[in-house]
Structure formats: C-alpha cells, structure tokens
Design a protein around this nucleic acid. Structure first.
Lengths: 214, 214
DNA sequence: CGACGCTTTGAGGAGATTCAAGACACGTGG
DNA sequence: CCACGTGTCTTGAATCTCCTCAAAGCGTCG
C-alpha cells in the first residue's frame, strides 16, 4: 500500500529531507507502536512491513521496493502500526512530519494523498481478499507479476530481477509455506513461464502468468 | 469497514436526511460504478456489500447490520466500488452528499471520519489477512463473535440473534464453502458453544469461542 | 574449509473441496 | 389447510490441495 507519492520526490520538499540514512539487513527503520515521525522514501534496497498479531504470530503486510515510500501505517493515528525491517542494506530519505506540515502548500497535497490512499486501501483489501480464496499457484503467479510491474514502474527491468526476500517471507506474505513457494517456482520453470535460480528471476512468458490469474 | 459514524446520527444533520427508504430482499441500494450520492444509515434489516472481481467471481466484502452505516466505498473516488444489496427488507436513511458538504461545521467532522477510516481500513486489512491464514473453524468462530459484538454494540442482544445471510453468503465472505460452514456450525453445537437452528443463533459459551481464536 | 541458513525435494497426512443425495423450510396455489 | 415445488441446509464419501516432517543440496561468510 505504501506506493505513489511521486510528487513529493521533486520540488521544494526535496530541501527538507534527511538524505542518506542507512540500515543494514535485519535492522528496523521504525517499530510498531512508536510515534509517527514522517514518511520514508527508499532510495535503494528493500524493506518488509510486519504486523504483529496477538499470540506470537506475525504477518508480512507488504514489501517495499526501491523508489517506493512507506510510513502510511502511521499517518492517521500518528502511531506506526507495523515494524519496517530492511531485507538488505537500505539507503533511504526521511521526510519529517513536522516539516511537511509546516509547508501550507504541501498540506493540501498531503490531504489529497491521504484521500487517494483511503481509496487505494479499499482496492488493495478487496484484491487481497480475492487472492486469499485462490490456489497457491495463483498467489505465487500474482506475486511475481506484481513484483515485475512495481519494479518496471520505478525504472528497473520488469523481466529480470532479484527477489530480496526469502521463500519463507514470500510464503508468510502469501499465506502459504516456504516449501510450497519453492515447489511452485519450479513448476513455473518447468512450464517455461520463468527461470529462477535461488533469488534471481527471469520472466519468460508474462502473458501465461497473467492468463493463469484469469 | 462501514461502521462508526455515530456522531452523524444526532444533531442538525438529522434534519437533512431522507428517511424511510425501503428496499426489498435482493434489491440494490447502490451499484458498483455509480456516482457517490452520500452515506446510507441502516434503520432495520441488513445488507451485503459485494465487489465484482474480473471473471464472474464476486466477493462479499462485508455485511452491514441494523444501526450501521455504508457508502464508504464511494467516499474517496466519488464512485461506489461495491454493490450494496438488501439481505431482507431494509429501511434506511440517506444522507445526501451535497447537503453534508454544505454544512461547514460538519465538513471537518467528515474529514476526521475519513482519517479515522483510512486508519481503520489498515487494521481491518491486517485482521483479514491474519484470518485468511487460519482454519475454517477459526474463521467461523470469528464470524459469529463479530456478529454478536456488532449487534450488541447497537443495542441488540449479543447472545441470541438471527443471521440474515445464507450459509453460501457466509462462506463467500469467509473464503470457504457453504458445506464447510454448515459442518462447523454443527461442530460448535456438539461442543455446546452455541445452539443453531437454521438461521437462529444462540451463543452459549462465548469465552470458548474467543479462546479458540487465540 | 566448515558451519549455518536458505532452498529444494520427497512421503505421508490433515483439512477443505467437490459431488451427490436427502432433509427441511417457506411460499404458492389448489 | 394441505400438497407441492423450490431453494436452502445438512450429511456422507471420495478426492485434492496444501501442510508437516524429514533429509539432502547449495551458498555464503567467517
């Protein structure tokens, strides 16, 4: 869900950001329950957004890819709902909340963003509900296509890329086990829809993957 | 998701509403894709909110109970995303969008509501994702408890009530089949956690149902 | 090189679906 | 008021999908 926000990456706001923050793999950018301190724009590396349900069960709500923004989970309550953890070394900008609010011209943009987001949330939720009724194969296909699309949108290759998360983490996010994720990747490879070696993915026949979802 | 909004049910706003609208079972209150015309407060009866995914597969996003409000799915884009269909004869108030916006004093309330909702959406989504990884038994237990809580919140009995939706519709909403819903209801009855005869539910041991979720 | 974590692969089992048939409830018309 | 028909609900048996448990490859990093 924490996507969009391109308009904030240019303009006067650029002067306010804290650039060049670094987190190593496994380190948190913010923790669930801590006060909102603004948005985070990922410059390189990627991040997982974790929600801790009661009773030691945790859920990866989303992955954040380079060029995307996170922090939306703290916007309305001013408390982050999730913990953001680096999947690999991450370089990010911090857009401090108080500085954004100080700019009147940006405030309306910000409210508009919130509005769009409230809408996007709705779509995302319906999409996820739909997906949760589908087979493991459909979930993995959907995941691969989504990664491809999101990377392409940010100027990276949508055909060939590296998954920065483990099979375990993919499975957690999709609601299936890591063994199943692994098996299905190889099923798709057998079908010549993609090539996968460890974390390296090359999409051969995206159309087949998409058709599979319909 | 379309809950809360109590503050709108009292005060000056009450003068603006269109009261006493009726829809019979199966009739729509609004359709997906139609322009936003305001919020709907259900006075009696209940409603299902349906989202139509591509390829003839439809999903019941939520049920709306008497006393609750719907229409949130059209707020941000000004286009309804879902179709709202009466599960039984429904009597509702219509809060026209243009009249709400005309009241400056209400506008800020409205924005605040939107904000809260954006947050609530997030929680709801996480909750749903969590639930989608659980067993069919846990989903049904969660559903029963949720119905009970929501009815109680509105002043109805939380211990004994009538389900206005079919097993098929419950299953659709929970991502399981109607046979499974039926079997689990009777499992819970065998365990003496509730009594169920057709659509009539009587909760015997809510604590056990709740413990089951943990 | 060796240890550790991640990934792959296999076999068996649990849970939910599917298909099918029968029971029940409700409304309609005779 | 009862008989009938339709749709919903229940119940059973077979099947399938995915999970669990287990063990063996592979990679990476000290």
């Amino acid at each position: 869900m924490p996507r969009g926000l391109e308009r904030f990456e240019v303009g006067e706001l650029a002067l306010l950001v804290n650039r060049n923050n670094i987190r190593q793999k496994g380190e948190a950018i913010y923790h669930a329950g801590s006060p909102y301190r603004g948005m985070i724009a990922i410059r390189s590396g990627s991040v997982k957004l974790i929600s801790f349900g009661q009773h030691d069960n945790e859920l990866i709500v989303d992955f954040i890819l380079p060029g995307e923004v996170l922090g939306f989970d703290g916007l309305s309550t001013q408390i982050y709902h999730c913990t953001a953890v680096a999947l690999e070394t991450v370089n990010y900008c911090h857009l401090p909340a108080h500085k954004i609010n100080a700019l009147d011209s940006q405030k309306s943009h910000f409210n508009q963003l919130l509005l769009e987001r409230s809408c996007g949330q709705f779509d995302a939720q319906v999409e996820r509900m739909m997906l949760s009724r589908r087979s493991a194969e459909e979930r993995v296909a959907s995941f691969v296509v989504q990664m491809s699309d999101r990377l392409q949108l940010r100027g990276y290759s949508g055909a060939e890329f590296r998954l920065s998360m483990s099979r375990e983490e993919i499975g957690n996010h999709l609601g299936i086990t890591h063994e199943t994720v692994s098996r299905i990747f190889h099923l798709f490879q057998d079908k010549q829809w993609l090539e996968i070696k460890s974390k390296q993915v090359k999409i051969i026949d995206k159309k087949k993957l998409l058709n599979f979802l319909h």
